[in-house]
Design a protein around this nucleic acid. Structure first.
Lengths: 189, 189
DNA sequence: GTCTATAGAGTGATAGAC
DNA sequence: GTCTATCACTCTATAGAC
């Protein structure tokens, strides 16, 4: 038979955008079906657990992207400053300079939080931990590094909220510029 | 007829909590009816525009609270530092030290943003503007004051998201403590 | 026949409008 | 309370690949 369905990776990307735009409650199966071009049969074939499993898979997919493109470089760069610089570039790219919101952050505020609390806590916890380690390796005292890491991740989340609220992308790029400076990185070209 | 309904102020407070806990989509009229003790008939009597009007009224109600308890003190305090200190206390109290999320911030991330974009932009815009003015009056250069104000409001939003994600209230109080320091206020007792 | 992927009618529950 | 629309979801049927 013909294979119309995109592979799982593409599929999760499309479903993620529906959740991102409409929230967990607002993302109806009708919308998801429309966006993916799949009928309910196919959707339930891929995700027997229904909408909840779709969301779980989407969160895991995003988490995996950050693991590969943000957390791992923070952990593995021999030069911690380079890892932190990489984090800012990847973050700016991922959120399309403020055009995109953080789906996991949005889920954290929603009632859907209870369903996905573990995944949400893990994602942010790992981000802060990897950044704190990199900051410690680049010379900050451990306690200070932890606070600075927490502050940085919170600032990114807040900037996404504010950029969206003000409908002004500059809010996000200004925030990233300030954070780069505070973390001792050279101003970006 | 018997008057079971609380007055409009109380009513809006109750409806606000339902939106806060469940989001715009997730807050069903059944939930709202249950929380308020009002039937659908009464709800449509108070809010002929239905759920959308309820949300609009709730946002306006919250905005009014911040106007009175945060924005006005920032504008009117003869000592700008006192106004800023007052802002932190009111903010900490309002968000119950991180137990409560910012409904308007949550709406900003949701699809409901399109419905309430004007109100959302106004709220955050006024907060940042009043804070920037107070910072300018307390000695910061105007451009610096603007950036610092934006950074502060974003940090508060981000801390609320993170506190909720980590299920750890300390995230919020640590953020407020750092912000107080950065804005030149004495550490809180 | 078996497996995977598909479409979509049909389920009861519940949504918001009135 | 009544209305209709839509919700998440189930189920049956069907396709071609093996």
């Amino acid at each position: 038979m013909r294979r119309i369905a995109p592979d799982r990776d593409q599929l999760l990307g499309i479903v993620a955008e529906v959740f991102r735009e409409h929230g967990y409650e607002g993302a109806s199966l009708a919308l998801i079906g429309e966006a993916t071009g799949l009928g309910k049969g196919s959707l339930y074939h891929f995700f027997p657990g229904g909408k909840e499993e779709m969301a779980r898979a989407v969160i895991a997919h995003i988490d995996g992207w950050f693991e590969d493109n943000v957390f791992a470089p923070l952990r593995d760069s021999t030069d911690p400053q380079a890892g932190i610089g990489h984090m800012f570039e990847a973050t700016d790219g991922y959120f399309r300079s403020g055009r995109r919101v953080c789906l996991i952050g949005a889920f954290a505020l929603d009632e859907s939080r209870d369903l996905f609390a573990g995944q949400i806590r893990d994602y942010f916890g790992r981000w802060i931990m990897r950044l704190a380690e990199a900051l410690a390796r680049s010379g900050h005292r451990p306690g200070e590094a932890s606070e600075l890491a927490e502050e940085t991740v919170a600032a990114i989340q807040g900037a996404l909220t504010l950029a969206r609220a003000a409908n002004d992308l500059d809010v996000f790029s200004r925030a990233l510029r300030r954070l780069r400076m505070r973390l001792g990185l050279p101003a970006k070209i």
